[in-house]
Design a protein around this nucleic acid. Structure first.
Length: 502
RNA sequence: GGCGCAUUGGUGUAGUUGGUUAACACGCCGCCCUCUCAAGGCGGAGACCACGGGUUCGAGUCCCGUAUGCGCUACCA
């Protein structure tokens, strides 16, 4: 049987990195098994869902390179009739019943507290909660039909048998069992508009879509038993479940936008200059590992080849970042991995990303793809070695692409103001450099060192001063390569104008 | 409150039939390289494998208990 998996986000906000990772694992599993990867947008909560969210989720998946869905995207809201029909069928078959209890008030905010209080109150009673105490549970069908026909509002609940237990083998967490006494007669359809609830919708849709493997977050693990019950009531085969460990914040709390801000949003990584392959690689390693062989840098193909559900962990992973240290705005390993990709990936793959970065910074010039294309390649190859994100090409790297750049204050202090004689040395050096022939790194080095000897100063003084003069920075590639790439005229001009900063 | 799941250095993980000094990556520190900073090379600090019992000649690996964390428990998804 062909494997069919789905990623089913609800479009109530940006794409959370935890969801992105769930999508990735689904995708990897489908590709690994030669199966189908489907997308279902769970937009049943019209209040909170938005087209904008849907769009941003789609964009995020495309950015990650996993948007090659094998079938049309399914929108859950358009399946409401099917969900309702399924529930009505269960009522007819006596597997579900109409509950005419008036709908209770519930303040969304303190549900958790309410649950705990109710449970504590019940604890005083007999053996736990009596989930089958509903007076409408065994109402004769004729009376139920009559009251419904009379227009009395009702909800539809699944009739969970009081004895026994449900079980399923989770591909990650292993054998799971839960006594029926722990499961209430869950509501399938809301009273009033008879709109379907989540547990019903997912099951009906997954059956409809022929899903064979449900791979999702561990927060659904306990509720899976309810869904198994629905599958069984509906007489459908139960798919294989694989629950994924959660991704936690440094304080081990759930990662949330409200508390942790933009670090949890996938788009942040795109906007801050991450290479998609790097972030994808990092994400894959959160809650999964290939086992024995500990090579961590893996291409998409390698990830597909090595991915298994058995390699998924059971313990939650901590996403480590600091909200006070800007250098650690996100997990350091993610940053390291991105730098690794930036400096080692094939230049032709990096080029388009650098292009769009330079474009959005207004630094792109048409010649970069024409007469200067060779120069551009050399330059990028030179400066990428110490960059971390794509943003660095327009930030620290600005001076390579434009004459208008800023001098880093600390760099000026350290390399230019340090020695007053630089005010005179720099223009003289400019003169010398301007005459170098041919214009190569070696020739410039010879000229500069000779000049230093003549003036009786250390070459290092001139080299460091030149670095700040030509790039505005205190750090960067080997200086003679920088001269080479910046060019004779621009180098000389920058040396001269830097004299005024001394 | 009930039920479930988890627990290896700061973080991500390896350690799949119990057997020697618990491995790797990130981060951190030092040295080398050197025109700076990275990268790279070499080395180092950091884990009594949550805790307590038990089984065993021997346990990170099996069993029980405790603690802690997380999840679920809703006419939210």
């Amino acid at each position: 049987m062909t494997v069919r998996v789905r990623f089913a986000p609800s479009p109530t906000g940006y794409l959370h990195i935890g969801s992105a990772r769930t999508a990735l694992f689904n995708w990897l599993y489908a590709r690994k098994r030669g199966g189908k990867f489907l997308l279902r947008v769970e937009d049943t909560d019209l209040q909170r869902s938005s087209d904008e969210s849907t769009r941003s989720i789609l964009e995020g998946l495309a950015w990650l390179g996993i948007s090659d869905y094998d079938e049309e995207i399914v929108f859950q809201s358009s399946n409401a009739d099917k969900h309702r029909a399924a529930a009505e069928r269960l009522v007819r078959e006596g597997r579900a019943y109409r509950d005419f209890t008036p709908k209770g008030e519930r303040s969304d905010a303190n549900v958790k507290q309410e649950i705990a209080e109710r449970a504590r109150a019940q604890a005083g009673g007999a053996e736990g909660a009596d989930h089958r105490a509903n007076p409408y549970r065994d109402l004769p069908p004729e009376e139920s039909d009559r009251r419904a026909a009379a227009g009395e509002p009702f909800a539809v609940r699944l009739k969970v048998s009081p004895e026994g237990e449900t079980r399923f083998a989770d591909a990650v967490y292993g054998e799971q069992t839960r006594a029926h006494s722990e499961i209430e007669d869950l509501v399938l359809l809301r009273s009033g508009d008879l709109s379907p609830l989540y547990n019903l919708s997912v099951v009906v849709d997954d059956i409809e879509m022929g899903i064979t493997h449900v791979i999702r977050g561990q927060d659904h693990l306990t509720n899976t038993h309810k869904q198994v019950l629905i599958y069984e009531a509906l007489g459908a085969p139960v798919p294989t479940f694989a629950h994924l460990p959660l991704i936690l914040a440094p304080n081990k709390a759930k990662l949330s936008k409200r508390k942790h801000g933009e670090v949890v949003s996938l788009t942040t990584y795109r906007d801050r200059g991450f290479v998609p392959a790097a972030f994808r690689n990092y994400l894959a390693l959160l809650g999964w590992s290939p086992g024995e062989e500990n090579r961590e840098i893996m291409s998409l193909e390698e990830l597909v080849e090595r991915f298994t559900l058995e390699g998924v962990h059971r313990s939650n992973a901590v996403f480590n970042f600091s909200d006070t240290d800007p250098r650690q705005w996100t997990d350091q390993k993610a940053l390291w991995m991105n730098a690794e990709y930036v400096r080692t990936m094939p230049l032709e793959e990096l080029l388009p990303m650098v292009k769009s970065e330079l474009e959005s910074a207004g630094l792109w010039r048409a010649e970069f793809e024409g007469g200067l294309s060779g120069w551009l390649g050399r330059t990028i190859d030179l400066i990428r070695q110490r960059f971390i994100t794509l943003k660095d090409f327009s930030g620290q790297g600005r001076a390579y692409f434009a004459d208008g750049f800023e001098y880093d204050e600390a760099a000026v202090r350290k390399n230019l103001k340090k020695d007053a004689s630089l005010a005179e040395l720099l223009p003289a050096l400019a003169e010398r450099v301007g005459a170098v022939e041919p214009w190569t790194a070696e020739a410039v080095e010879q000229a500069l060192r000779a000049f230093a000897d003549e003036r009786g100063v250390k070459a290092g003084l001139l080299i460091n001063a030149s670095r700040t003069a030509l790039t505005g920075q205190s750090v960067g590639p080997s200086m003679f390569d920088v001269f080479d790439v910046i060019g004779r005229e621009r180098s000389a001009a920058r040396l001269r104008s830097a004299a005024s900063l001394v």
